[in-house]
Design a protein around this nucleic acid. Structure first.
Lengths: 213, 213
DNA sequence: CACCCAATACCGGTTTACCGGTAGATGAAA
DNA sequence: TTTCATCTACCGGTAAACCGGTATTGGGTG
């Protein structure tokens, strides 16, 4: 997955030319960078991406033309191996979590130091997730909002959810718990309603994300 | 989820009476413990669990009568809200990971200090995952074995996997990627073969665990 | 006691997943 | 150039999931 010869191509997407220049200068000193391309709109970059590749994208998530969350997801869909680092000048907890959800490998504030940019770049390139200092602090906070609803599942529901994540079928679960398959299905349906999802796949993702298991 | 008045009932499952006594003495001094019950076999404990509950179980995973991994899973199935702390006198990386996989909230070596036992107990009770010092060190090591196969999925496969985790149906994915539903299904089937799973649920869990997304 | 929730269970119907194959086109590596 | 992986696409069949309902039981709580 990681290149042996550290030769990385970088793309910068930011609608502020001054930021682009800043990043460009800042990254000039980093060894192993083979090329740099800059874009001022999401559309431009996506067009370019059709015939080119980038190892890493520094993505301003507050672009004028497209929503940063969607763009990130589009990039990961079009080129899953591309590493996306979100860059922004404001850090809001839910925003950070959402962009990570959409495939970003990190979140950087524009006021981060040059050293931090380089550190995060390396971190992301070696497969990790990277945040600048302020962002880490925000993530460390409990986050009242998303903490509030632990999605109260009943015992039975948790039991069944556990088995669902193991790929067991309804009838299989029924046998294991000595229940009617119809009962198991009812529980599953109740859970899907509670968690506001519409199939087993989303149910599993919801369980993983909310750490219900 | 957490009790307001910290009154916890503890169960100890270990086939060595001396260890039971040791743990009992060690935990005597911990405030907030309302009761302690000890068992020397897994069967005994499971029988007891049918008519009683425990907030936390210190589980020796090397019992004579049953496999520790299975027992842990059984406990979590029978009483999902019970916190299981695995206790053992040997720490092997894959074993630790497996028992956590089966629902344990921590792993302690028997040579851990009294202070460590208490710390881990508190950590687990407050919803965290707790390890004694040596265990942490083992977990920190890369682990050659499980690192070796990054389960090489192709780009297309990753794209589709991403959409599968979002609960999209085969036909939905096909539309989004402008492909035939049959093609999407083929990709899905190839992935299931590669990852050695047999349905979408396991596929998603495999993806999450191996951080393929 | 009345009420609600959890847990149990059912019916009939539609859609989707899953399995067993097979197979053409392409582009890159040996 | 032949081989290999990838991506594409198909057929026919079985199993399972999903949806819209309904309904009974037993435990708690106001």
């Amino acid at each position: 997955m990681l290149k042996q010869t550290a030769e990385y191509s970088i793309a910068i997407v930011d609608d502020h030319p001054v930021v682009i220049e800043g990043l460009r200068t800042l990254l000039q000193g980093v060894p192993g960078i083979s090329s740099m391309h800059a874009f001022t709109t999401g559309g431009e970059f996506m067009d370019w991406l059709e015939h080119h590749t980038a190892d890493i994208v520094l993505l301003d998530i507050m672009l004028p033309d497209v929503n940063g969350l969607d763009l990130c997801k589009d990039i990961k869909l079009a080129a899953p191996e591309t590493i996306v680092l979100a860059v922004s000048n404001q850090a809001e907890r839910s925003m950070i979590l959402q962009i990570l959800q959409n495939g970003a490998s990190g979140y950087l504030l524009k006021n981060a130091s040059a050293a931090e940019f380089r550190r995060c770049l390396e971190e992301a390139l070696s497969g990790g997730v990277a945040f600048s200092r302020e962002v880490r602090e925000i993530l460390a906070r409990p986050g009242r909002a998303e903490l509030k609803a632990p999605a109260a599942l009943t015992r039975r529901e948790k039991q069944i959810l556990q088995l669902v994540t193991e790929g067991k079928t309804t009838t299989g679960i029924a046998k294991e718990l000595h229940l009617s398959p119809l009962t198991v299905e009812t529980h599953r349906r109740n859970m899907m309603q509670k968690l506001e999802v519409k199939n087993a796949a989303e149910l599993i993702m919801a369980a993983v994300q909310r750490k219900l298991l």
